[in-house]
Amino acid sequence: MMQFVADGILNASLIALGALGLSMTYNVLRFANFAQGEVLAIGAYFALGAVTVIGAGVGVMGPVKFGWPLLVSIPLAIVCTSIVVLMVDYLVFRPLRNSNASRITLIMAAFGLSLMGRNLIHLFAGGDPKYFSFYIPKAIEIMPGVKMVPDDLAIIGLCVFAVVSLHMFLTKTNMGRMMRAVSENPTLARINGIDLKMIIRMTWIIGTALAVTAGTLQGHIFQAKAEMGFDMLLPMFAALILGGVGNLYGTVLGALVIGLAESFAVYFDLSAYRAAVSFMIMLLVLLVRPQGLLGERE
């Protein structure tokens, strides 16, 4: 039983990272970025490329099977993926914003990009799943009856670190405050002297950084494949909606609920219905609290 809680928390950490990225772009750019899954996948492939070039087995640290190459590859992949994302924004979303395109137009554009991204990965990297390493780590017992691979623990730690960093960034730094200002009232933000274009770029970069981190870690413990991001899209959106759209803490809570729900679906031998179980929970919560767990009523 506790084992499933542990697995659920691992799952939730990865969902939370991706969903937080989604939440950031939603708050500032005001549309649901359906291509977030592909950002995650492309990031994972960039990281995979970096790890392969550096050498996968190099510098294994202690009990975990990843070494410094993986930790170095994450920032590298964030930089590469951010460049791709900013180019896409410049070529696709910026002209749409300038022509005051409706929200649904932006979402459809993201859908198209998502499809394109997935197929480009197929084209360049092939359809087979790729592995970061073939080393099989040994699980250790962290509590009586609960075994976890050290890597998983490290990943949970990294995710908690990322969430806390994001919180500090948004509440304690000038840039973070500016982002919150833009997400609440873009016009008033401009009147205050905030450059909207700069904030939009920063938002893309932060959303990308979160997605790439999620993608790389997910690729590391499972595998990298073209559909990895798309498969994450539904739980990410479920976490976002469940927590209350726009509330970052709600998103983390939503991710925790979805992660545990998926894990318990396996516990109750419903693994085939994993996705359905999380959606059932989401529907039930929304019936009682339409604004989500921590969302505010409009």
Binding site: R177, R180, A181, E184, N185, T187, L188, R190, I191, N192, G193, I194, D195, L196
Partner: peptide
């Protein structure tokens, strides 16, 4: 551009939604 006018010495208080309510 609006955001550059602050540095030119212009302060502007709109009629509605003139504070960041959540902040």
């Amino acid at each position: 551009e609006t955001h550059k006018l602050v540095r030119e010495g212009l302060g502007y208080v709109p009629q509605t939604e003139n504070v960041f309510a959540k902040l």
